[in-house]
Computed example of a mutant assay.
Amino acid sequence: MGRKEDRQSMKKPITKKGWFWFLILLVLAGGGFAAVKLIPIPLDFNFGKAATEESTAATKESSENTITAKDAEQIIETYKSIALGDPLVEDTKGASYDEVVAILGDPSSNVDSEISGTTSKMVIWNSFNGAATISVTFKDDQATGKSISKIPVEEKKTKITIAQVDAIPFDGTYTYDQAVQYFGTPDSLSDSLINGVQAVTAMWSTNMEQAVTFHFDDNIAVSKETVE
């Protein structure tokens, strides 16, 4: 059976399997990148090292700025440009800490740890003028996981209903791009590359009757769950 058929027959996404999180804890030394969703840190809307120098002024002006759909698109494209490595596959290389600093500027905080000679770091960046929070987890100076929350989402008058969400198929044909086209910009994302599988978790809430989280493996929707 080919890889595509294997993926379509999965009962659970890779991020829902116990061994996946065991590896995350073991390899990344507990630096759970998705945890940043719970950390409401203000950000500034500049790129590179200049962002840090202007963060104070940007914070004061943030309440007067209007984040547009185009801004949200730029934020997500910047987030996507951070390359991830696969800790279980040789010859894959994620962005280094310095490379991510060149993209986002100096971070606001980081946590370092070391287990059995493996160094890990979880770093949070204050960028985008309070519009989003980005966290990146590094293993031996290689980005292996990332997340973004507080993405600015344009509100619509009509909300997606639970019935519409329940109609989404999970037969190996529904993609992340289709979800974005249907639901709009997600409110948060988290990404990892484990054992050759690009795992993405996307959460939509702003224009939803009830918030919903989708799990994608290699761009294919494999499960969903509503958020109370």
Rank of each mutant, 00 (worst) to 15 (best):
G2Q: 09
R3D: 12
E5W: 01
K16A: 15
W19Q: 04
W19R: 06
F20T: 11
L23K: 05
L25P: 04
L26E: 10
V27E: 09
G30S: 06
G32M: 13
P40Y: 05
N46R: 09
F47A: 07
F47R: 07
A51S: 14
T52D: 04
T56F: 14
E61A: 14
S62T: 13
S62G: 08
E64D: 13
N65G: 02
T66L: 10
T68R: 07
K70H: 08
Y79E: 04
K80F: 07
K80Q: 12
S81C: 05
S81Y: 00
P87A: 07
L88R: 08
L88H: 01
T92R: 03
K93V: 15
A95M: 14
A95V: 00
Y97M: 02
V100P: 04
V100Y: 07
V100F: 05
V100A: 10
A102T: 08
I103Q: 13
G105L: 02
D106Y: 12
S108R: 05
S108M: 05
T118R: 06
I124L: 11
W125A: 04
A132C: 08
D141M: 07
T144Q: 09
G145C: 06
I148D: 06
S149G: 14
K159R: 07
I162H: 02
A163Q: 13
D166K: 15
I168C: 11
F170V: 15
D171I: 03
T173K: 09
Y176M: 10
D177N: 10
V180L: 13
Q181A: 15
F183V: 14
P186V: 10
P186C: 09
S188C: 02
V200N: 03
W204Y: 09
W204M: 00
S205L: 07
T206G: 03
N207H: 05
M208S: 00
H215N: 15
H215K: 06
D218A: 10
E225T: 12
T226Q: 07
V227W: 15
V227C: 04
E228Q: 11
E228P: 13
